[in-house]
Nucleic acid binder design. Structure first.
Lengths: 145, 145
DNA sequence: GGAACACCTAAACCTGACTTTAGGTCAATA
DNA sequence: TATTGACCTAAAGTCAGGTTTAGGTGTTCC
């Protein structure tokens, strides 16, 4: 059993955010003692790990709440929950692809700017074409477009 | 030369958002004709590509504006701009790593739920340990934690 | 000539995800 | 005993990144 302050340190999430998640219904079976103090058990910590993961995958608080509600309904929602994870898997794979494209653009710019830095001005690079690029930069450029 | 409506379709960005970017100073040398109608040229389109890429890499509008301002100052800001791209490269690489970790978590959950679906209930999977997992799932689990 | 359409500005409004504030409880320490 | 520190609630505030609204201009189709 952990206090909200301990959990805050373990997960590096502000106490106010943990209370907010609780208020929004993301921590469904979180218990409180006689003085209304929250007590986090292993299930609650696992819920928090799932919350962080679903947030990373782009899910909104209200949808995470809905998922947590399904969890509390037991066996009859297993398929629903599995399908939700399959959908988030697609989301996150797409997001990684987009980030990799952006990374290629940034890597191209890094090369472009280090060439300009050598020249000390923008003249030569302003008119650069695919033919002028080294093979590996050409590849990066293509993956960025 | 393109109208705002054409650019909106080309980039799949709402017209209102393009106007907002212009208002916030992200489209520094965007020209307007005698009736104040925006005319996008190739430089402006390239700026938009960079804006989308920097946004993906987690940069805020006000910092993108600052970058665009550096661009307008010419040769003396080349090194500054290069260093900004190097920093965004780190950001985006870190973000990809975090997303991959979340993806491992989600993949683990997908396996976990498909096993539960076979059983029709949560009993067996609730008490699963590392030893019970197939080798490849064990790897996924480890990369998620 | 008038209606439809694409454009314009300024300003108000919206949304999600928190964070801060104000006022209070409770247990342990000086 | 009083003050410190960790906890509590409800409600208001904040912030980024847009979106919507209200009122207007200029061009083209019927």
């Amino acid at each position: 059993m952990y206090s909200i302050g301990e959990v805050s340190k373990m997960f590096d999430i502000p106490v106010s955010t943990l209370r907010y998640y609780d208020k929004e219904g993301l921590l469904i079976d979180l218990e409180k003692d006689k003085s209304r103090i929250r007590k986090f058990n292993e299930n609650n910590l696992e819920a928090l790990r799932v919350i962080e993961c679903l947030k990373k995958s782009g899910m909104q608080i209200k949808d995470i709440k809905e998922f947590m509600h399904w969890c509390s309904l037991g066996d009859k929602t297993i398929t629903k929950r599995k399908e939700m994870f399959l959908k988030q898997k697609e989301n996150i794979e797409l997001e990684i692809k987009e980030l990799q494209k952006a990374l290629n653009m940034i890597n191209y710019k890094c090369w472009y700017y280090s060439e300009m830095e050598k020249d000390g001005n923008e003249k030569r690079m302003k008119n650069i074409t695919l033919q002028d690029m080294p093979k590996e930069i050409k590849e990066i450029w293509k993956n960025a477009h």
